[in-house]
């Protein structure tokens, strides 16, 4: 496996994905945000989805703003907080669960053990585990190691990714990923840069690579009102078709702006565009 050092040393990696450079990516092993059991929308069957913290993109509509930074963050949900005389600053003893620590260390062994708790449900439904985020490929060496561990215990693996990652990451993940759930956010590169902070050139290259590797793939197209809806969505569909991706493998997602309270709790400026309903 290619190490992070090797990846950073690779000029290609710098060229295609500058955010993967040392400064922007201080840690190799991510903190974990959350675990969602009985997930039915993150791949086939019943699944457990693990969310990593940290993402090289900065989508203005991100519905997981807690996943952007790689460092852990405290959030305090004002509507739950009862302003105790002395805040416990501890999730376990906060009486109302108003406090939430986003980002906790979890070893690969712990993650696998957690995943195995629902194995009977995967077996019955053709499900498995999904890695999401954040951006799992921001930590691709770790992700490849984790997926190898999943494969060792015979778990079906799905990767939920923006595909904003160096070629080496795709190389590392290909052998251990059973299904790819790829976001495709905007066809117009100017829009892509404006709304996500990065260009879609790398993403398109990786998407084409996955098609050529004939992997099991689902492409998800979110359409954000006033940003990436209408013509851009039509153009994305056209492009995906031109790659030979079947319509059935393209899923259009509706945009909701339900995550505003999280921006507030984290003390972040709320950048979410308004949803249609």
């Amino acid at each position: 496996m290619i190490t992070r050092r090797e990846m950073i040393a690779s000029s290609a990696a710098f060229a295609v994905a500058p955010l993967f450079a040392r400064g922007a990516r201080p840690i190799k092993t991510p903190l974990m945000l959350d675990t969602k059991r009985m997930a039915i929308w993150d791949g086939p069957g019943l699944r457990t989805t693990f969310f990593v913290k940290g993402c090289p993109l900065k989508c203005i509509w991100c519905h997981n703003p807690e996943s952007l930074k790689v460092e852990s963050e405290w959030a305090r949900f004002k509507h739950l907080c009862r302003n105790c005389a002395k805040c416990t600053m501890d999730e376990a003893t906060c009486p109302t669960r108003a406090l939430k620590l986003y980002g906790k260390a979890m070893s690969i062994d712990d993650i696998v053990a957690k995943a195995l708790e629902d194995k009977p449900f995967y077996d019955k439904s053709g499900g498995g585990v999904t890695l999401s985020g954040g951006e799992p490929l921001f930590f691709w060496e770790w992700a490849a190691e984790l997926f190898a561990a999943f494969k060792k215990v015979d778990l079906h693996t799905c990767l939920d990714t923006s595909l904003y990652a160096p070629k080496a990451a795709i190389d590392a993940m290909l052998p251990v990923t059973d299904m790819w759930l790829a976001d495709y956010k905007a066809q117009d590169d100017e829009k892509h840069k404006k709304y996500t902070g990065v260009s879609n050139v790398v993403i398109k290259r990786n998407l084409e690579r996955l098609v050529s590797e004939k992997v099991k793939l689902e492409v998800r197209c979110l359409s954000v009102p006033g940003c990436t809806d209408g013509e851009d969505l039509v153009n994305r569909h056209k492009y995906l078709k031109s790659l030979g991706i079947a319509d059935s493998a393209v899923v259009d997602l509706e945009y909701y702006d339900y995550a505003r309270s999280k921006y507030l709790a984290l003390g972040m400026p709320d950048t979410m565009p308004r949803a249609n309903r």
């Binding site: 039915i40 929308w41 449900f121």
Partner: peptide
């Protein structure tokens, strides 16, 4: 959590595992 066809599938799996 249990919307649509996939939701039905989830319910089936839940009762199956519960009975098991």
């Amino acid at each position: 959590t249990i919307q649509g066809e996939k939701g039905l599938m989830a319910m089936k799996v839940l009762i199956d595992r519960y009975f098991a």
